[in-house]
């Protein structure tokens, strides 16, 4: 984990990582000014409500499910369940993986439209058979959830 703090080491790992390779690139153009856009938020930082079930950490291939996280939740109501990155700083300041306060301040400044009510959270360490579940099932359900929130644009934040 310490080595992964060095960008070059991470890139070497990423080069050998047996993940998904894609060819086509889906594309939706922005069709109105950002100041009028409702903003959706997705994190892969493993954030969830303390009252929700934690992400499964016992499976070395990760957990392809997602949780919805209310954008008005208190920090004390939230917790990060994700053992594959150092989240000590994110525990102190959730904005590092879930920039709710940052987006709210941009909304107050009039730079963007309103933040949606429910954000979406995954744990980002997903391998093997779960990759298929993520792509075929979870990502679609999560996208439907975000559309239900009437987001126009979505910001995705990794951990």
């Amino acid at each position: 984990m310490t080595l992964f703090r060095i960008p070059g080491i991470r890139e070497l790992w990423a080069k050998s990582y047996q993940g998904v390779t894609c060819e086509d690139i889906p594309w939706t153009p922005l069709n109105k000014p950002l100041a009028q856009c409702r903003i959706g938020l997705v994190t892969t930082g493993g954030l969830h409500l303390r009252s929700d079930p934690p992400f499964e950490m016992g499976d070395p291939d990760g957990d392809p499910s997602f949780r919805t996280v209310p954008c008005d939740a208190e920090a004390s109501e939230l917790v990060i369940t994700h053992h594959y990155y150092d989240h000590r700083d994110a525990d102190r300041d959730l904005n590092l993986i879930w920039p709710r306060d940052v987006l709210k301040s941009l909304e107050s400044a009039g730079s963007i439209g309103p933040l949606v009510l429910q954000s979406v959270s995954f744990m980002g360490h997903i391998n093997g058979p779960h990759l298929n579940t993520l792509i075929q099932e979870s990502a679609r359900s999560a996208a439907q959830e975000i559309r239900k929130q009437q987001a126009d644009v979505v910001l995705l934040v990794p951990a």
Partner: peptide, 21 residues
């Protein structure tokens, strides 16, 4: 996830910490 959102008609931008990926 980002690709699926875009496919469903939402414009997206993602942060990345892994360029190769």
């Amino acid at each position: 996830m980002q690709r699926e959102l875009e496919r469903q008609g939402l414009a997206t931008v993602g942060l990345s910490l892994l360029r190769k990926l």
